[in-house]
Nucleic acid binder design. Structure first.
Length: 344
DNA sequence: TCCGCTTGCACGTTTGAAGCGG
DNA sequence: ACCGCTTCAAACGTGCAAGCGG
């Protein structure tokens, strides 16, 4: 069985040391430690404070805020592949009721897992470190039959993007390489087909250039809507959203110590007990598959169980809570597959 | 009836081809 | 011929409202 490595971090918002890392294990860091920074963190935090919503459509919708990161600690002349996938925050479905999100039952069965590869991949470390990299063109869809390689999500479910850095000269060799994985608490969002929280709409219109038509001189209906949005904001409490009591709210219930990121990494072995996935990212469709696929042959040919039984469980894995024995949960990382294994 | 999803609309932004001048 | 700059139209991306369907 193939071994993968994952990077974990501690982001306990209660601790001043939350973003600080313990020194790496000697062997793991001989090649240097990769650090990832969320570029538009302030914007993400603004959205996060009221509950980020991402529109998903049948034909795919871009994210806003979009994922933009910067990297350091890469080897300048080694090639890397940078990828993103979306991970469920918990195993619940939500509904917007009375100006707040409520749990609406168990989550739908997981849609096909897809991974979006940054279009520059593979590229040398110097390229990735030269400037921030954006996943602007990544699109989200609710169409499980999507043929465009968009990330498939369920509406009314919560997700967060997970970034993967792996040293590889080509996408062929990605699955055999060591992975370092990063995620950011404030990038958690609820997938929706129409905005539920008017505060989110207001924030998006204020920050998204494509929505400017609805900000100034827009349609009559839009002006009307803006007025109502303003009104709701006037009497609204931006932190109200964070005071809900469903299990996942712990992600938002406390102010996040999000400043001064220092997501240097700590490598961890993860058994790659990945499960079969029937779909593949269109990004990979351009590349033929190796003729032999040892891992795929060893993995069960069925959909994986839901990777995250509880929000707390998930939060522990990804650092929302400080967990002194985080490493003991290493195996859980592989339950949500990084790739669509039918194509690898 | 309720609620989530799809579709069409109007508008601004982005992109790239075409034209022009140095 | 080449390069850089400007212009402009088409394509794209956006949120909203209306209508549909489970």
């Amino acid at each position: 069985m193939q071994n993968f490595y994952a990077c974990v971090f501690s982001t306990d918002p209660k601790s001043n040391l939350s973003m600080r890392r313990s020194p790496p294990a000697a062997d793991s860091y001989q090649q240097g430690c990769i650090r990832m920074t969320l570029e538009n963190a302030d914007l993400w935090k603004s959205f996060h404070s009221i509950g980020t919503e991402m529109i998903i459509t049948k034909h795919g919708r871009r994210m806003f805020p979009h994922c933009s990161i910067s990297l350091s600690g890469l080897q300048p002349f080694a090639n890397y592949v940078i990828m993103v996938d979306m991970v469920p925050v918990d195993s619940f479905k939500y509904k917007w009721k009375k100006e707040q999100w409520e749990v609406a039952g168990k989550a739908e069965p997981q849609p096909p897992c897809r991974t979006y590869m940054h279009p520059d991949s593979p590229a040398p470390g110097s390229h990735w470190m030269k400037q921030s990299l954006s996943f602007l063109k990544m699109k989200l869809t609710n169409n499980t039959l999507d043929q465009h390689g968009h990330i498939i999500l369920h509406s009314m479910h919560r997700y967060y993007p997970r970034f993967h850095v792996t040293q590889a000269d080509s996408p062929y060799t990605v699955r055999w390489g060591p992975f370092q994985t990063f995620s950011f608490p404030e990038t958690t969002f609820t997938a929706v087909t129409a905005y539920q929280n008017p505060k989110i709409t207001k924030l998006k219109i204020d920050h998204n250039p494509f929505a400017k038509g609805f900000r100034e001189g827009g349609t009559h209906s839009h002006k009307k809507n803006q007025a109502s949005t303003q009104q709701s904001l006037k009497g609204g409490d931006l932190s109200a959203w964070a005071l809900e009591q469903d299990p996942s709210e712990s992600l938002h219930a406390e102010p996040l110590a999000l400043h001064d990121y220092d997501y240097s990494c700590e490598e961890q072995m993860v058994p790659a007990s990945v499960a079969y996935q029937p779909y593949r990212s269109a990004e990979y469709a351009r590349f033929p598959l190796p003729s032999t696929d040892v891992d795929a042959s060893q993995t069960p040919n069925h959909a994986p169980p839901h990777p995250l039984a509880t929000a707390e469980h998930n939060a522990q894995q990804h650092g929302y809570y400080h967990h002194p024995h985080q490493h003991s949960h290493a195996a859980d990382w592989s339950q949500y597959p990084l790739f669509s294994y039918s194509c690898w």
